[in-house]
Design a protein around this nucleic acid. Structure first.
Lengths: 217, 217, 217, 217
DNA sequence: AATGAATGAGGGTTCATTCAT
DNA sequence: TATGAATGAACCCTCATTCAT
């Protein structure tokens, strides 16, 4: 009512930021409630806009969800891509660095954890999401690990073990910490330096060429 | 399905069996679609009854969900309870037996996996579920593992390691296999004897008293 | 479960009383909640039977309602029929007796009040009910009153007044007490001897041939 | 209905008028069918909108009902408030004016009658409604009548009578006409000038200081 | 670009009615 | 006669989507 010049500025401000703000809000809501239980009204309220505005940028709730997951995955992809460098030096040192990085970006980053939750929860409604995630995120990460393990074996640092076929075994404590924290909340979180150190310690022992075992299998 | 003699099967009275049949159907639907997206019509159809009948046994959709999770958890609880025996013999042998059992009942049993999915997905709507699950299922399992690790350390079979504080590290490959299969489907399943063997191998190496480290077997 | 010979007697007992018991229970529930909001489950529970049994005696909820109203009206009809005797003696004495009787049977009898409520509430769903009630109960009562008023005028006891055309005016305080109690509950009831006495007093003054007014208006 | 230029009328925005239109439609439906039997679909259809729109303005069916009763009561309250002026002149003249007004607004106004029906029918579901109605509408009206009666007694115009304790007796013919018309329909309505005149006539006689009775009881 | 009133299909829940026992 | 499990239509309410402004 009357002359609403006051909020004219607010509307003008940022047009290209809108989609990002919406995705941000959508992420929070989808992560909290899952796809079906999330209301676009709540997303809009969190983004400080109205429901109709969402439809200016995303044609449907499903599309918004897909865009949200993709958006939130992007950083991980970039980060993990950085790990595909040619390995050099001690394989164990590489693993140390690698897992220190991974813990920071998958366990202690709430976003990454919530993405995991969303993927697990909505697999049957969005089967492509998990496929794509495996192809673009997890698969490469596993391959990277495998390469490091092989590198360690080749240079006589590691023994031959199932870790070559199942690098997942090395990655497992990360998933454990993720799911644990997802399910039981930050108050019961496992992680912290001690957990990571324990992981690395057990892994080193598990992978290492035993004393006096020579270089063979 | 089954032997259904003509239309005599309709409007049967099976007060005893109904709840179980409904829970069975509800489990499938909740596991597939999550709480919010599951329609009671679909649950009823799967159970071969009509929607109204569900309300003869469960007062609401939420109660049905809770009852479903509890029902599906019962086997795990019973199974895990069986593991609390006093340890004797080789600690590593105990762990082998233990994990063989756990793989069978947590990784290869679809139900157990789906329960995990449901818990993760619905934590924010049913916070008590995860709490109860931790208190009654996971917590005891972790304690049991810890006891075995201590037992191994006491008898000089294992070295002192972070596994005592974080038995989760030993359990992690199980969770990994669970979540992997949940997300990527049976076709990409990790498990099988090789994965378990690899897990046990790495674990043994990781825990074992190193050669020449004194105190060892 | 087990040998249920114990309640065999309970079922045998009274077969002809069942309909009456059901009507009794139905009356309470219909009076409390109205037709639409009354559940047959509640009627059955109040009657100490199960829902299905109602259908052995009444073909539908509507029929049960109609039977209930008819049943509860029967006493009034009988009572009011008794009033159609040929008037004799003082007209005012007849009115006194009449209204004393009416107060007892319409104001202080909860049943009669509740019937009024039910009729008013359900007129549009059961139009015949009100018609029949007017034809069989209220109409005759009004006619009876009119006869007494005429009788009083004829014997010079009453003046000519609108009470001849509208005996309702004399009856009105009864309706007032009824509706008042229906709406505001027994705690705020108007009735009691004082109210009746006041009614009769005002009526007598209103109807009476004024002192020194001779026989005309 | 009304001027509806093409299909431009659909999806109109009338935030200001909508609530009133909905209350209007709700009143008709609730009055006809009672709370439980009224369908929001019918309310919406009558208001020319769809069911969902109702929920933009009223959070539930119960709230809509309460708002409806309150809205329809507002005029009565205003009108009756106007009557609380200091009495002057003939008490009987005041009563004449008063009841002429009341007949117009309580007996001949269908809305007021239907409100009475709704209150009587839904007392047990909405106990507060009747309480509030007594406190805000009926109670003050009774008090007002009592004041006039006392005024008449004080100025020697009226004799002392039960009308002082029970002004309801004076008001009763109004309720009679209301309930009569509610139950038997407009075709059998009692009212009209003759009924009112009769009421006033009997009341005057009933209240008046009798000829030759002096000022005493 | 943004709003927000309006829509309408859909799902949870209730309950009168049926029917095999 | 009585039961009570089962049905299925109906209704309240929600919410993704649309559209006039």
């Amino acid at each position: 009512m009357g002359h609403d010049m006051g909020n004219a500025g607010r509307r003008q401000r940022r047009k290209e930021e809108r989609p990002g703000e919406i995705l941000e809000a959508a992420f929070e809501e989808f992560a909290r409630s899952g796809f079906a239980a999330t209301k676009l009204d709540d997303v809009a309220a969190r983004a400080g806009i109205t429901k109709g505005t969402i439809y200016l940028y995303f044609p449907s709730k499903e599309d918004l969800f897909l865009a949200t997951v993709r958006e939130m995955n992007r950083p991980s992809q970039e980060n993990l891509a950085a790990l595909t460098a040619v390995p050099q030096g001690s394989a164990m040192a590489i693993l140390r660095t690698h897992f220190a990085f991974v813990y920071e970006h998958m366990v202690e980053d709430r976003r990454a954890r919530e993405i995991l939750r969303m993927l697990m929860a909505e697999v049957s409604r969005f089967p492509d999401l998990a496929d794509r995630w495996r192809a673009e995120v997890i698969g490469p990460a596993v391959e990277n690990l495998r390469r490091v393990v092989r590198y360690g074996i080749e240079r006589g640092e590691f023994r031959a073990s199932a870790a070559e076929e199942f690098p997942h075994l090395l990655f497992a404590p990360v998933m454990m910490a993720c799911t644990w924290r997802l399910m039981f909340g930050d108050d019961h979180a496992l992680d912290g330096a001690a957990y990571l150190a324990g992981h690395l310690d057990l892994m080193e022992r598990g992978l290492a060429q035993g004393v006096g075992e020579g270089g063979g299998v």
